[in-house]
């Protein structure tokens, strides 16, 4: 447990948290490994887990009928995955698939949610990096949507 606390606090996402708060997160967290091509999240499926990536690249994908798999973004160690956990009905809106062997912290959403409700300071401490990560992804999506390399039609 103490070991998990130590490695968890090194994760980029949790850098701003106090030891006490890390300790609360540890209680909801386990280590998980995924083989290459294994799914961390499936679009539409209930997703109660929030992943903090430690090793390996994960692809966020949507399957488009007639086109196949569209890879929207790859996420890397230090990134978070499964933000849909935080908002009802807590279903993943993309597939997340391991492109190589992946090591991640899997945080139990319901567990964490209960602790955040009970301790607003923890809630705030976690919402800050969550908002930052979400905003960064929004910014990237916007730039991606601008399709800046498209040449004149």
């Amino acid at each position: 447990m103490e070991d998990l606390q130590r490695v968890l606090r090194e994760h980029h996402f949790l850098k701003g948290l106090s030891d006490d708060h890390i300790h609360l997160v540890v209680g909801c967290t386990k280590n998980m490994r995924f083989k290459k091509s294994e799914y961390l999240l499936r679009e539409g499926a209930a997703s109660g887990t929030f992943y903090l990536l430690r090793e390996g690249q994960v692809s966020l994908e949507a399957y488009v009928s007639g086109k196949g798999v569209m890879r929207l973004e790859t996420v890397e160690p230090g990134d978070v995955l499964g933000v849909s956990w935080a908002f009802p009905p807590s279903r993943a809106h993309l597939d997340a698939r391991a492109l190589e062997p992946v090591l991640a912290f899997a945080v139990d959403g319901a567990c964490l949610h209960a602790k955040m409700e009970a301790d607003p300071a923890l809630g705030y401490a976690l919402m800050k990096p969550l908002l930052e990560a979400t905003y960064a992804r929004l910014e990237r999506s916007r730039l991606q949507g601008l399709d800046v390399y498209r040449t004149g039609v």
């Binding site: 690249q57 966020l60 890879r71 890397e76 991606q144």
Partner: peptide, 8 residues
């Protein structure tokens, strides 16, 4: 490889 914008 990576998918996403260069700023990432």
């Amino acid at each position: 490889g990576h998918v996403g914008v260069v700023t990432a």
